[in-house]
Amino acid sequence: MLLDFALPAHDRKLIPEGRLSGPMPWVIAIMLFLTLLVAAIGLSLVDAVQKGGADLAQRATLQIIEPDPVARATQKVEISRMLRNVAGISKVEPVPEGEVRNLLKPWLGNDVIDSDIPVPALIDIRFKNAPDQATLTSLKKRLKTIAPKIRLDSHSSWMAPFFQLMSSLIYLAVAIFILLLIATSAVVILAVRSTLNTHRTTIEIMHMMGGTDLQAARLFQRRVALDALLGGSAGFGAAAAVILALGGRIAAVEPGLLAGATLPVYGWVALATIPLAVTGLAMLMARWTVVSALKKML
């Protein structure tokens, strides 16, 4: 089909190719701009979920909720020592009490947090592999022999609703992406039908002289391909500018949940292939539309 794009110059003259004079390249540019933005959002979310999900699934936080500060400090040391000897745990990081108090300040206020109010001792745990529920239960049981008042939270459990929301947004992005592709195809079909009607006489003349349906279809394919390429390039340029600008804004946000939501390199490669894929799709739709329409002629 790509060979059909390279028509001899004289054949190209049969259906005039009015570059950028018609609405088709502009409509395709707008459709592709929206398609690429949706694709970029979807790809960024996928990357964020993959990176963040894998990271969070390996993490857990242990809280020692012992009101006696001396006992709490002793338990923290003992538990940290014990955890470092547990197979399957790659890192044990006791959080300094000052840092815990700083974390709580925005919620409890300076006055309260600076008083003698007890705050739980925190230990961050990183597993070599994401632990299952049975592993966590077994570990918790062992830890309770040292500190009876503990709470072990897997990060993946409290982040689950967030990742479920992310997954829903990814599905939504895929659905919008498909709808936009369908709309782009519909635009191509309408444009080809309109062009076919405009040049019906030329096509009839070609037919009467022994021109085949595919010869006529190639002319439309080339015209549509050029429109799609022009529109696709414009749409890609605009979308890339928006994605880069948004990426800059996201990077300026404090590291956190949004930190992973940037478009990865493979995402850019995927985005770059979309205008080409849309051009191929447009050519295919043009061929199908023209051949279907011409079959109604003798």
Binding site: P8, H10, D11, K13, L14, P16, T201, T202, E204, I205, M206, M208, M209, G210, G211, Q215
Partner: peptide
């Protein structure tokens, strides 16, 4: 006549040969 209006005289006459 049914000439192709946007083609030149030369191209109109050459049309059947090009189609072939």
């Amino acid at each position: 006549f049914r000439l192709v209006q946007h083609l030149s005289t030369f191209d109109n006459i050459a049309l059947p040969l090009r189609i072939a």
